[in-house]
Structures are given as structure tokens and as C-alpha cells.
């Protein structure tokens, strides 16, 4: 075989091999194609055509440089010594050229209006297909805690980890550490400032200054943050003194529609935070409005499962 053609084949194979290997590294071609995303397939195909077509057309002309001879009639004019042949334009080129022009005119006058393409229409269709497919596949997921948790984790990594960190530790205080229910600082902050963020779930809110004695505040903060240890008598006393128990229950178990659970993270609390957002001692978490019902439940379950106390 001719060296040039061999080189062309080598270049093409190397380019495509390199691309394939790299995509494998990022998760594997199968993974990207298995979702039935034909956009991915088309892009890959386009890339293959691009490399192959250019390499082989250029090779064709390089072969002509190597083996052919020029000829033809020269035009009369010449500019600074440059002449022009009166050669015809290459036939294949001219044919495809006029073909594409006719195709463009046809497409614009007939093809496009008949198809009546609408990008928003296409979006609506795609979304419907997508939703139907997964709804059917996971119809029973709410009754399968393990799967639900798995789904929650997957969502968490994409939606929540940017603030809470992959391990949900809150990234050094930039967002809440989701493994523990609550920190001392947060309890103090709420006692001093009150809180009225989770309006949908706890419409009454919590008034500030229920306790004013710093010692009592300290005691409650420790008591709550440490998970309501029964032997912490001072804490328990202060908790009652502040009337905290009237809303949050004797051991911080919370009351629906009145006040959140304080002794452990539960799915209801997560749901409340996602619905209204939450402003606290360390910062503000925005509400998450673009999750579906099932996605909501899945994250709620996952986050609740993280909490150790």
C-alpha cells in the first residue's frame, strides 16, 4: 500500500482511538449511549465523519501532488507573474455544490414549513417521553426504601453536595453538617433571634428571647446539640423553663405543624427546608423548587438517613 494512504489510515484510527479511550475514562461510551440519547450518537458520528472525510480528501490531493502532472490552457492575463489555468472546476465538487444549494432552497421553502419544527414542541415531547419512561420504571419506588435512598443519594450528589459537600459535612461550616441534628451555635442563634423561615410546615414560627439568662441559654444549647441526654439535668430544666417543650415536645420529638423535631433529623424537616429554604446561624439555604414529588421524597429519605442523632 502507498505510504500516504497508510499514514491517512493511521491518523484516522489514532484520532478515533484516542477519543474512544478518553470517553471510556469519563464513564464509558455505553453509559452515554444507553440513555438512548441520539444526540450523543450523532455527535460521535459527526466526529468520525469529520476526521475520515478530511483525511481522505486531503490524501487524495496529496497523491495528485505526488503522481499527477498539471496541465490545461493558460488564460491570457497574468498578475505579478501568476497565471491562471482555464481548467474546469472538479466535477464532483461542482455537483455536490449545486446539490446542496438546491437542497437548501427546497428545505427552506418546503422541508422546513412542512415539518413545522418548533424547538419548544420538541422539548415538550422529549420531556414527556423521559418522564413517562422513568415513572413507569420506578412506579413502586416509594415503597422500596433502599432504592429510594439510592436515588436520594444520586440527587444529593448533584444538587446538594455543591454546598453540603460530598460527605454532607457542610464543608467547614459553609452549610449545615447533615450528620448531626444541630450545633450549639445554631440553637443559640435561634433562641436569640427567633425563627420564622419554614412557614409552610411551621406557620407560627418561633419567637425570640424565650430565654435571656446566658447560663440557661448555654445549658439548653448543649442539651439540644448533644441530643437530649437524660443525665443533663440543668439542660433539661432550662429547656422546660424556656417553654421549649410546649412546642418541641419533652425530648425534642417535635410536633407536626407546630415545631420541628430537634433530637434527630427526619424526613419532614428536610422536606420543610427544601420547600421554604432556611436561614440560620451560618447562612441561608435557598428553597428547592424544581424537584419533583418523588425526587423530594428520595432526598428527604437520604438526608434523614445520614443523621446520627
Amino acid at each position: 500500500m502507498n505510504k500516504t494512504i497508510l499514514a491517512a489510515i493511521l491518523v484516522t484510527v489514532a484520532m478515533l482511538g484516542f477519543t474512544y479511550a478518553s470517553i471510556e475514562m469519563a464513564g464509558g461510551l455505553d453509559k452515554f449511549l444507553s440513555g438512548g440519547d441520539w444526540v450523543n450518537m450523532l455527535a460521535i458520528l459527526g466526529a468520525v465523519v469529520l476526521v475520515a472525510a478530511t483525511t481522505f480528501v486531503v490524501t487524495k490531493y496529496i497523491r495528485q501532488m505526488q503522481n499527477d502532472t498539471v496541465g490545461g490552457k493558460l488564460a491570457d492575463e497574468n498578475w505579478d507573474g501568476i497565471g491562471e489555468y482555464k481548467n474546469e472546476a472538479p466535477f464532483g465538487w461542482a455537483l455536490i455544490y449545486f446539490g446542496t444549494i438546491i437542497w437548501a432552497i427546497w428545505y427552506f421553502l418546503a422541508g422546513y414549513p412542512v415539518n413545522s419544527y418548533s424547538q419548544i414542541g420538541e422539548y415538550n415531547e422529549d420531556t414527556q417521553v423521559h418522564d413517562k419512561k422513568f415513572e413507569a420504571e420506578f412506579a413502586g419506588i416509594l415503597k422500596d426504601p433502599e432504592k429510594l435512598n439510592e436515588m436520594g443519594e444520586s440527587i444529593f450528589i448533584v444538587q446538594c453536595a455543591p454546598c453540603h459537600g460530598l460527605t454532607a459535612d457542610g464543608m467547614g461550616g459553609k452549610a449545615a453538617d447533615l450528620h448531626t441534628r444541630i450545633s450549639e451555635a445554631s440553637v443559640k442563634h435561634v433562641i436569640n433571634n427567633g425563627a420564622n423561615y419554614l412557614k409552610t410546615s411551621f406557620p407560627g414560627g418561633m419567637p425570640p428571647m424565650l430565654l435571656q439568662d446566658p447560663a440557661q441559654i448555654d445549658a439548653v444549647a448543649k442539651y439540644v446539640a448533644n441530643g437530649f441526654k437524660a443525665d443533663d439535668v440543668a439542660g433539661k430544666e432550662a429547656f422546660t423553663a424556656g417553654t421549649c417543650n410546649t412546642c418541641h415536645g419533652e425530648n425534642g420529638e417535635g410536633m407536626p405543624m407546630v415545631a420541628p423535631k430537634l433530637n434527630a433529623m427526619d424526613a419532614d424537616m428536610v422536606a420543610a427546608v427544601l420547600k421554604d429554604g432556611k436561614k440560620g446561624a451560618i447562612g441561608t439555604m435557598p428553597a428547592f423548587t424544581n424537584l419533583t414529588e418523588v425526587q423530594h421524597k428520595a432526598v428527604d429519605a437520604y438526608v434523614a438517613s445520614l443523621s446520627k442523632k
Binding site: 484520532m15 477519543t19 470517553i23 469519563a26 453509559k31 452515554f32 440519547d37 423521559h130 455543591p162 425526587q295
Partner: peptide, 26 residues
Amino acid sequence: TSMWIAGITQGMMWRAHDEFGNLAYS
């Protein structure tokens, strides 16, 4: 070559959904 691979990889990852139909990558 590096940008072509980077672009295709990035484009595919942006589009990817996980087995549950949610976004696969942050």
C-alpha cells in the same frame, strides 16, 4: 485533539441522566 475530546466529554456529561432519570453529574 485535547479540546475536541474535552468538549465531547463535557457535552455528554452535561446531558447524562442516571438510572433514575435524574442528572448524573454535578
